[in-house]
Design a protein around this nucleic acid. Sequence first.
DNA 1: CCTACCGATCGGTAGG
DNA 2: CCTACCGATCGGTAGG
Lengths: 204, 204
Amino acid sequence: MPPTDTQSAAPEARQTVTSEAVLDAALTLFAERGYHGTALSQIAERLGIRTPSLYNHMRSKQELLETLVAATLRDVLTDFHGAVADSEDPVVQLRAATRVYALRHATHRREALVVNRDTTSLPEPALTEMRERRREHERAIRSIIMRGIECGAFAVGNAGLASFAILEMSVSIARWFREDGPRTAEQVADEYAEFALRICRYRG
Amino acid sequence: MPPTDTQSAAPEARQTVTSEAVLDAALTLFAERGYHGTALSQIAERLGIRTPSLYNHMRSKQELLETLVAATLRDVLTDFHGAVADSEDPVVQLRAATRVYALRHATHRREALVVNRDTTSLPEPALTEMRERRREHERAIRSIIMRGIECGAFAVGNAGLASFAILEMSVSIARWFREDGPRTAEQVADEYAEFALRICRYRG
DNA sequence: CCTACCGATCGGTAGG
DNA sequence: CCTACCGATCGGTAGG
């Protein structure tokens, strides 16, 4: 029984929930309980609507996951390209690339948790495409490290091992970071950027 | 219709599946699809029995998860205490502690994936207890780093941040390590142990 | 170890 | 946006 105010003239005005709100609620719950641990009824409840009403804003539960993961990985790569555009110096690039990646995991914790926990629940071909995007990022980091080794700035036995370590320690920030904690996201990101350089044995 | 051989004399001999086999099948599937993404029927199918027969070897699906997580965290702490027992030197201790932790994540990938992905699916009080065990490990690593800072071996602004980074980069080995890959588990563990010292700015 | 079966809940559709 | 409803599957029990 909707309120009998002026808006009842336009039928479209009855819509109380947007697709963005559905995605946001799904993101929160997927991050909290995992994709398979979340029921559509819980997403609906959080929005104050009934389950079937969700289908006005999405095609399926799977599509929700796919949208969230694709958007997150797209943003990660955009961040990366922005971070390395300013300089050709591998030291500057690795610091900047690690900084934005670490920063994103502190400021977008839910997205990070879902991507890392539930990407494997995606159906093909999305699964393969998402894996390819992550690999693209990893290869780009590795290539920076290899250039750093070549020019003598870094000294690390295996660039692949180092790039995995750097990326994954950053990912884990999403597991423990708290906005109301003792350190800001920027402080953590700066510190992790230095960790990355140390892993590569950069003696600044 | 069991084979009509000699073993049919003893009724107990009909048992074809052990609790260990159930746990192992659950471990494989939980690691692959997550706890909520795995049905008991899939565990049974993998063992060649019917779903209700599983209940001869377990009390509930939840108990399977609880058993797996508790055993893994117990082993992690046992590893840790064994690794740091030989020396009081923070450098030696951090290297050894990281080495065994990294090694475990290369050799026990399934356990690591389940602990990291599905511990949050545990009911209380198991959830709190498992979190406490992980925190215990983290505090122990942090304490080694702090002692290293005090005696001048390490130079890192924040021991907590460093311990998180070291532990989580090691955890991630379970995500990418392959037994048939180019590096042995021991080689990876040794390399990560050096990464840990570098993060703490140990200038060996 | 099995068959037979349970209530609950799942994602999703029909139709308004 | 809703109610009414669907078949499928879930974890688990009864009883042998």
